[in-house]
Design a protein around this nucleic acid. Sequence first.
RNA 1: UCCCCAGUAGCUCAGUCGGUAGAGCAGGUGGCUGUUAACCACCGGGUCCGUGGUUCGAGUCCGCGCUGGGGAGCCA
Length: 474
Amino acid sequence: MRGSTMSSHPSSLRQSRISVKAALHSEREAPGLRLCGWVRTLRHGKETTFLELNDGSCLASLQVVVEAASPAAAEVAGIGTGACLEVTGDLVPSPAAGQRWELRATAIRLLGGADADYPLQKKRHSLEFLRSIAHLRPRSNTFGALFRVRNALAFAVHCFFQERGFLYVQTPIITANDCEGAGEMFRVTTLDPLAPPLHDGAVDWGQDFFGEKTGLTVSGQLQAELFATAFGDVYTFGPTFRAENSNTSRHVAEFWMIEPEMAFADLSDDCALAEEFLRYMVRHALEHCAEDLAFFNDRIEPGLIGKLEQLVRSEFRTLTYTEAVDLLRKSGESFSFPLGWGLDLQSEHERFLTEKIVGGPVFVTDYPAEIKAFYMRQNDDGRTVAAMDLLVPRVGEIIGGSQREERLDFLRRRMAELGIAPESLSWYLDIRRWGSCPHAGFGLGFERLLMYVTGMENIRDVIPFPRTPGNAKF
RNA sequence: UCCCCAGUAGCUCAGUCGGUAGAGCAGGUGGCUGUUAACCACCGGGUCCGUGGUUCGAGUCCGCGCUGGGGAGCCA
C-alpha cells in the first residue's frame, strides 16, 4: 500500500474485523469489536436505533444498538436497508428476548449507502422475483443459506473421494466427441458465422481452430474411464453443458456434475458407492449446516430434517427395471403414459415409484438395452444392460450410472448397431484393446443433490447464476 | 419444442356485471416505543406487459407477440 489517501484502506479493516458468526458464538462480553456487513433491517426510535447486520457468515444477523446520544447515531440517521456499514462497539448480553448478544455501537462508518430503490425489503419475496435480481439475492436469508450449503457440499465431495483414495481428474471442457448421446452440444468455434469456409456446400470444420468440429462437454465420463484404467478410482467434479431446449424446474444449460469411475467394479459396487456418497453428503450437511437446514425445514420443505435423518439411517431399495414395471402395473394407479417392458419409465412412473411405492431413494437397475447408451455393459440375458438410476422423492432422477462394456467385441458390435463410427472413438476402444478391465461409474447432478438436501424445488434457485434457454444474464 | 396458467405502485396482492385505480409492506413527515416482519397518524407514488381489435366506454372481452411460472419430452 502506498499514499496517505489509503489511511483507511480495506486491509486494515480486514485485519481487525470479526464475523457476525464469531460474535454471536462469543462466550463472553467483548469490548471494542469491529464488524462489517449489510443492514438487513432497522428500526429508528427517539432514544435508540436498532439495526440488524448480516455479513453472510451465518444465517443470523447481529443486533446493533445505537443510542441517540452516541456519535454513531448521526451516521445511521439517513441510511436504509441494504447499506454497508463498518460498526465498532461492545458485545454485551441482550436485555430483550430474541437474541443472546447484541452490539452497543460506539462508532459507525457508512461504507456504501442504499436508497429506497433497494429491491430487497424486509419482507418475504417470491423466488421468481429474487431470480430476476440474482446479483442481490445472495443477501437474502434463503439464498444466503443455500450458498453456504452449496459451499459445504462442494467441499464434502472432495473429502468423500479423497478419503477413499479416488484421484481427482480434470476432464476437458472443450471436446470433439459428439456421439455420446447425452445431449445437444454447444458449438465452440472461431469461424466467422457470416462467412464460414465451405466444402461441398457444407461448413468445412477442418479449417476451424481445432481442425474439427468441437463443443462444450456434455460429460467427462469417457475421459474419466481412460483415467480409471490407469489410476483405478477417479472422479471428476466440474461444469457440464447441455444445449437442450429444456424448460423445466430440473434442467439448466450449465450445471456441475460429479462423475466417479472405478476400475475392477461392477454394477453392485457402483450402487454401493452411490449410496455411500449420498449418505455422506446428507450427513455432512446435517453436521455442518444445522442452522441453514433448520431454516429450510421451517420455510421451504416442512419435515426436511426428518427426511434427511431418515436417509442417513435407512438402506436404499434396489429394484430391477423388470420388477419396477411389474410393481407399477400392480399398483392399480392409472398413468397418463403407457407402461410396458421395453418402454422408458416416464417422470410420473419414476415419481410414483420413489414417492409412493418405496417412500425414499430407490435404485432401478438393468434396463432394456434399447433405451440406454452404447457404452453400458450387456447382461447375459441378451436384452438388458447393467445400468442404474437413483430416484429420490421430489427431484426424481439424481444419479445415472452403469457398469461399462469392457469387452472389445461386444462394444464394437453395439456401436455398429447404433451407427457410431469407430474411428471417432478409437482411443475409447483402445482401452478395451490393451489391458481392459471391468469398470463402472455414475454421474450425479450437483444441483439436483442440492435440491434434495435443501428442499428447493427449482434448479435455478440452487446455482448462483442459472443459464437457461433465452437467459444468460449476470 | 408442446400443453396449461399468470403479468395491476419498488415488493406481495385485491379490483364485482365492461363505467376511468385500491390495500399492506417499502419511501417521506410527525408521534410513540428495549425494538425485533415494531406500532399510530398523515403524505407522495401507476405506460394496469406490449400491440391490434370489439365497444359510447377496456385493468376487465377477443387476436397476436413478449416475459414469467407449472407440467411434458430430453436428462444430471
